[in-house]
């Protein structure tokens, strides 16, 4: 039997794209930057599909900054995020994650929408989006809906994307009322490394060092990104010191459920998850980091 051959189509507008998706059956495969899709094509994980290239859609481009909100098109590249003044102001942890993502070449191609829809437990843009309670806007030919990132990502590679839908943009409330914006990633090396554990943290500190508000999101320690209201509640009102963070140790261990894989053991991930939390006590991040843009 002949294998079905792949086909390709590049719609020019969002309307054209969603109309096309309505007509195509589930054999279509969306692609934006193509960095994940290209490796899947090469390995044979996808074949004979209709490749729908979203890279020409103007509606998916651009970063718009309003007074309280940041709207990032799903087709915005990691390079664009890393160099955007709007993202540096409204979502500094995301800017930091983008700056250490893959390599220069990967950042020039890969999009934030692709990173979200790939739904890798190690996806580097995800923890920064979770701490800012990102909302995703999805469009199909019949309707547009909004869903929180926590509801959208259901498991490794599993997302709540209905047939015919495209992720249009990401909406973030600016994190202006936090004094610390952190993103830390541990990988096998600095460049081109999949995160073994990553952590995004937003902290509002009082002048005398008391945690007034804190949001933490760990990646690569569970099937999806972990935010723990118990850890956050425990730390609120306490001084940002090693002893306090150490007391949160059992709560963090409860919240995460890492696995052994080719990159690291579950036991190592458990230790690193807390190690990254301890880093919050170092006021300065490593020199190549972005922080305290306020």
């Amino acid at each position: 039997m002949m294998r079905p051959k792949a086909t390709y189509v590049r719609p020019g507008t969002l309307t054209e794209a969603v109309d096309l998706l309505q007509d195509l059956d589930d054999r279509c495969k969306l692609l934006a930057g193509g960095t994940d899709v290209a490796t899947e094509l090469r390995s044979g994980a996808i074949r004979g599909r209709c490749l729908v290239d979203l890279s020409a859609l103007p509606e998916l481009k651009g970063i718009h900054e309003a007074e309280e909100e940041l709207v990032i098109g799903s087709g915005v590249t990691l390079s664009e995020i890393a160099s955007s003044a709007g993202v540096a102001r409204g979502a500094p942890a995301l800017a930091k994650a983008a700056a250490v993502f893959g390599s220069r070449q990967i950042r020039n191609m890969a999009t934030i929408g692709g990173n979200i829809c790939r739904a890798s437990p190690a996806g580097d843009t995800l923890p920064p989006l979770y701490v800012q309670d990102a909302e995703l806007e999805l469009t199909s030919s019949s309707k547009t809906r909004r869903v929180s990132i926590r509801d959208f990502i259901q498991g490794p590679g599993r997302i709540d994307l209905k047939a015919g839908e495209i992720l249009k943009c990401i909406r973030l409330k600016k994190a202006a009322d936090f004094t610390m914006h952190r993103f830390d990633k541990i990988g096998n090396r600095k460049a081109l490394a999949v995160s073994i554990v990553n952590l995004a943290g937003l902290v509002a500190l009082s002048p005398d060092g008391i945690i007034q508000r804190i949001r933490l999101a760990w990646g690569s320690v569970a099937p999806t990104v972990v935010r723990s209201s118990r850890v956050e509640a425990f730390l609120t009102g306490k001084p940002l010191r090693m002893e306090t963070l150490d007391q949160a140790y059992p709560l963090v261990q409860d919240a995460i459920s890492p696995i052994d894989d080719a990159r690291a053991s579950a036991a190592y991930r458990r230790r690193v998850a807390v190690g990254l939390l301890f880093r919050l006590t170092t006021q300065q991040e490593s020199p190549d980091s972005i922080m305290d843009i306020a």
Binding site: Y8, R10, L31, G34, T35, A38, T39, R42, L51, D53, S55, S79, R104, Q105, I106, N108, M109
Partner: peptide, 18 residues
């Protein structure tokens, strides 16, 4: 690595159609 519209990208990850 090739340069596309001024930006370095990996040609192995880019579709020719793009």
């Amino acid at each position: 690595t090739i340069v596309v519209d001024g930006k370095a990208v990996n040609a192995c990850l880019m579709l020719a159609a793009q």
